[in-house]
Write a protein that binds this DNA or RNA. Structure first.
Lengths: 243, 243
DNA sequence: GTCTATATAACGATAGAC
DNA sequence: GTCTATCGTTATATAGAC
């Protein structure tokens, strides 16, 4: 699927995310009118992502944010209780949206090879649409509180577990060669992340997300589809995890 | 080469780096005795790397650093002119050391395949020895001034250009298949980076740097050494979505 | 007029700097 | 230790919609 089609199918704008953010924090946000609240939450989130990308969340002052959004200091505090909570709110809502869409993509029944492609494409397209959020999420994870940090690590491992499951299925069914599933999953994850962490590089080279996706699939498939001399004597793939 | 051998060959400790740091900033550092200066510079750098890993450089106060190093606020300012310069100093010295060792590894004449392995191993072993510096360098790059930031980007691209050169040589000589050199280099770089960015993950799984290196080489070589007979079962199998 | 959303201004704490 | 700037935060005042 082309990125342009994907983009139209998913209602994934800052606004749609902030609408969810409002719904989930309806009691804390002191603004009554939904349309006003969503509009300003969007300005706030976009401002945070922009300023954080430039100098980091903790180096961004709320006065910077006030200037960037055009809202006063007092107004800002009608939308969140404090700077820490602002970070949590943005992280939580993005994680939720991304997790749901990824889980949906992985759940579609298909042969392992197609499922892997589907997950790779979905992840790349999602991170293309929400690049600034993905970047923010990676760079500012350590600023989270203990609870939220645990959640963030779980999410990192969750993405990988989706890939692991597909690779395990493929190895078991014989679609894939006998590979080290956790290591291969980690590599896939690393390549997925590079797309949004190094966006400046790929933009500068004029690489599109479709080109990156195709390259990534080629690279990974050349490894997992290669013919191994070792014929799997055992039906179960001998992939072991170290403790 | 085993990591333990590599480690012994290279004199790469915090102290050795800080000795270079002292030499390069001899005029700015107000401490006269070299041994005292190196000892405290080491405490300072290790403290910065530790605290920054925990909550980020800009969230680390110099009072945190004072407590961590056991030096007073006044003493700290004998070693650097300000917080910004402290960041620059650490970035610059690490970049210098790593760049030199990497260039040396890439310059050894050998067939492309061996040179690629050499660079991959060297980078992984270096980042294993200086993991906290590599992590710091990646996460805190945006805090640099414009000049230093340019340098940092150049360094990122320099590593990649080393890999590109090897891949180009190999493609030209026929050792490697006809591949997209910039994209493949970027992927190699991404996999190299994952080792120090996700160290917590690999440590938790008991993966050693040798195991990671072997896996990485396998993955990359399966792509660049593959026979390019165009026999795709499905020509360009698009990812189909069910509606 | 009343309620909602925003703006102003000031507080205490803490930052970098010397 | 000290100084000053600036941080996050909040109490309070004001403007605008119906």
């Amino acid at each position: 699927m082309k990125f342009s089609e994907f983009r139209k199918l998913r209602a994934l704008s800052s606004e749609s995310i902030c609408a969810g953010m409002l719904a989930d924090n309806r009691d804390r946000i002191r603004i009554k009118k939904d349309d006003v609240a969503v509009k300003n939450l969007t300005r706030i989130m976009d401002g945070v992502l922009e300023l954080s990308a430039r100098k980091g969340f903790s180096a961004m002052s709320l006065r910077d944010l006030s200037r960037e959004t055009g809202l006063s200091m007092g107004a800002l505090y009608s939308y969140f209780a404090g700077k820490d909570e602002l970070l949590d709110m943005i992280q939580r809502q993005g994680t939720k949206v991304v997790g749901e869409l990824l889980a949906e993509a992985a759940s579609r029944p298909a042969p392992p090879r197609d499922r892997l492609r589907e997950v790779v494409y979905t992840h790349l397209y999602l991170s293309e649409m929400l690049q600034s959020w993905f970047y923010f999420s990676f760079m500012e994870a350590k600023g989270l509180g203990r609870e939220q940090l645990k959640k963030a690590i779980e999410t990192e491992l969750y993405t990988e577990s989706i890939i692991e499951e597909i690779l395990s299925d493929g190895a078991r069914s014989g679609d894939f060669a006998s590979i080290d599933v956790p290591m291969t999953s980690a590599a896939v994850k690393a390549l997925l992340q590079d797309w949004y962490l190094k966006r400046w590089k790929y933009s500068g080279r004029g690489v599109t997300v479709e080109q990156y996706a195709r390259f990534m699939i080629d690279l990974v498939e050349s490894y997992i589809l290669k013919k191994r001399r070792k014929v799997p004597a055992r039906p179960a793939a001998p992939v072991r995890r170290k403790k």
